[in-house]
Nucleic acid binder design. Structure first.
Ligand SMILES: [Mn+2]
Ligand SMILES: [Mn+2]
Ligand SMILES: [Zn+2]
Ligand SMILES: [Zn+2]
Lengths: 124, 124
DNA sequence: TTTTTAATGCGACATTGTTGCAATAATATA
DNA sequence: TATATTATTGCAACAATGTCGCATTAAAAA
């Protein structure tokens, strides 16, 4: 099943590249020039995640955020970094530093979801 | 506004103490002996959080989990620990080790929400 | 016991995200 | 270029999660 490039996919990907932050569906929809259906946005984003060009974070607000992968190659995905969500301006950014976690014996990590909320530098 | 002890509050608190894990609304409701309304469960849990006897974690499944506070005093709350959610059995447990995170200049932490999902020791 | 009011049950509601299905359009093929 | 194939879309319906208003109930105080 090969992917097709559509107006929606291109626009959404460009948006995620341009804005240097993780965005939820609402943010994306309001920033899009053309009207793209809600279900389509979710489907596009989930496809991006499957393809490994975008990673998903679930915020402590319960919403899904999507961010363009920066330091990921086709094969190696390192998303063991925290994200900071500003409760004032809503911005969600990837924090640079890789978090190192050691799990107890016999535990296998599948997904790392580190999120810190608070006030960002702009809003202090 | 003083708190009142009701059957609901007592049962829910005992349940959270007994089960040594974080539970979401569904888990709690199915384990309760008496029928407690859904809205009531949420209200009780949120009150517990306000009172600092329970802490809330948002899972990467988007659900709210609640855990009885163990190493917290009335005044000091340290919830900078990760939680592990097993995708097989659903268990959500607090990991012992405190995670130390350093935020960039000007960033103020309000809430730490560290969650790792994967397979737990029992399910490997 | 009576009074006060915190807590509950119920229903309605908002929000978030997913899915089935017919229509559309991107790509492959002729 | 014209046609065929099928991935993608829009729409509606749906499920799940969590919150809120309001009348009723019951815990604690008087
Ligand atoms: Mn990230
Ligand atoms: Mn915990
Ligand atoms: Zn901010
Ligand atoms: Zn398990």
């Amino acid at each position: 099943m090969k992917r097709r490039q559509t107006h929606s996919t291109q626009e959404i990907l460009e948006l995620l590249k341009a804005e240097n932050q993780a965005m939820n569906h609402e943010m994306i929809q309001s920033k899009l020039d053309s009207q793209v259906n809600r279900a389509t946005i979710y489907r596009v984003l989930n496809r991006f995640c499957e393809d490994g060009i975008v990673h998903k974070i679930v915020g402590d607000d319960g919403k899904q955020y999507f961010a363009f992968c920066l330091n990921c190659t086709q094969k190696t995905h390192n998303h063991n970094h925290f994200h900071f969500r500003c409760t004032q301006c809503g911005k969600v950014e990837c924090l640079e530093k890789e978090a190192s976690i050691s799990l107890p014996e016999g535990y296998v990590l599948e997904n790392f979801n580190g999120l810190i909320s608070g006030t960002c530098n702009d809003c202090t």
